[in-house]
Design a protein around this nucleic acid. Structure first.
Lengths: 221, 221
DNA sequence: GTCTATAAGGAGATAGAC
DNA sequence: GTCTATCTCCTTATAGAC
């Protein structure tokens, strides 16, 4: 798990890049910082990855890929149990949130938060990064919206899409900087793990998902 | 409203910086891009602002300051009307969300989105930026949580703080990149304004805020 | 207040030895 | 595969003339 010499250079570069990109952002990070942390030569990055941008993509997919698989697998498991109504909605939300929250709460080596980079990329309006997000996230989005729609037939697809977009927004916000959550935590400043965040989000959002439709033309204020 | 020669240089720099910082981020933006867009000399930036970092702070506060004032003023107005229950919760949420959403939906000059920069700063875990957010946001947070607490006495402060953190997360996510919202829009790809986003968020979150408390120790999965 | 010129350094990327 | 050395360009920031 630690970055000793026994790990191959490619993995060391990916680990270091994840940390440096997460802390400093794509433009704020330099390859020289990354190769120093990975204890490899600058040219090694260009041997394994063809550019700084490709390196970022590899780091990103390496983290998000397994999350995506776990979300979809958990969703399939919920479907098999044949739950109905509110209980199903809660379990579907958990299937989506937990894999991401567990990763957010797990600080590798105490100082690196694996999801910081994901949160940053989500917040970047650069079309290049938006496409990267989209390529990883579209399948998950469609699967979860479809699953929810079957349990909430009275809620239109458009309303569900809106609401899930808001849920993903809140999740991305937590992934950027888990400290914000710890501050809210339990009101006494105690540290908080993925399970606490999961319970809070599930209670809040599952009830909201069952809310009546938004008015099409809200009255002027 | 447009950046012609009649505006003073300081304002032109702030306008240009907002756009360039929003599109490229703090590190991705260069002062040379900004001075070119503002049609001023590079040294002018250092005359009016002492560094790139101070320029960012000024841009940030110029935008967020008025939003904060409007949120607090709207909240006071809701308080004076003496609403109770769910209706009060909805109006409090609207008082918080609308000033930010209106700004998000208003694309100055078609290509600049004033809130892009705010969203970026929120997503940046750099302590320097987190402190900037905190300095502007703390007063608003406390005021709104207190107002909600009076209407939702059964909801603990800790739960309310969690839920509002999630609402702010979702809001920040929209501010980063309003295109994401337009895609969800009305299911037919129609463009969407601040009122639509307001109606969707209010319906979703006001119901969620009235949800029962999250379980302290959720069962293992 | 506004300008030119420049200091001083860091960036991504590559050529070519080993 | 890994290294050194370097190319080329761009960055923030400042000194000092006008």
């Amino acid at each position: 798990m630690d970055k000793n010499e026994t790990m191959d250079r490619k993995t060391r570069i990916l680990d270091a890049a994840e940390q440096v990109f997460g802390n400093s952002g794509f433009d704020g990070a330099s390859l020289r910082q990354i190769v120093q942390a990975a204890r490899v030569n600058l040219a090694t990055v260009y041997y394994y990855f063809e550019s700084k941008e490709h390196l970022l993509e590899e780091v990103f997919k390496r983290r998000l890929g397994p999350v995506k698989e776990e979300q979809l697998a958990s969703l399939r498991q919920v479907e098999r149990r044949g739950l109905k109504g509110m209980a199903a909605v809660e379990k579907i939300l958990e299937a989506m949130l937990f894999p991401a929250l567990r990763l957010t709460a797990s600080a590798d080596l105490k100082r690196s938060i694996p999801t910081k980079l994901i949160g940053r990329v989500v917040a970047d309006p650069n079309p290049r990064f938006q496409e990267l997000i989209r390529s990883q996230h579209d399948e998950v989005r469609h699967a979860f919206i479809a699953a929810l729609q079957r349990r909430l037939p009275k809620c239109s697809i458009a309303d569900l899409a809106w609401r899930m977009e808001l849920v993903w927004g809140a999740l991305a916000f937590l992934m950027c900087n888990p400290d914000r959550v710890k501050r809210a935590a339990d009101g006494e400043g105690h540290s908080v793990g993925a399970r606490m965040a999961l319970a809070q989000m599930t209670a809040f959002f599952s009830t909201g998902l069952c809310a009546p439709a938004a008015k099409r033309n809200p009255p002027a204020r």
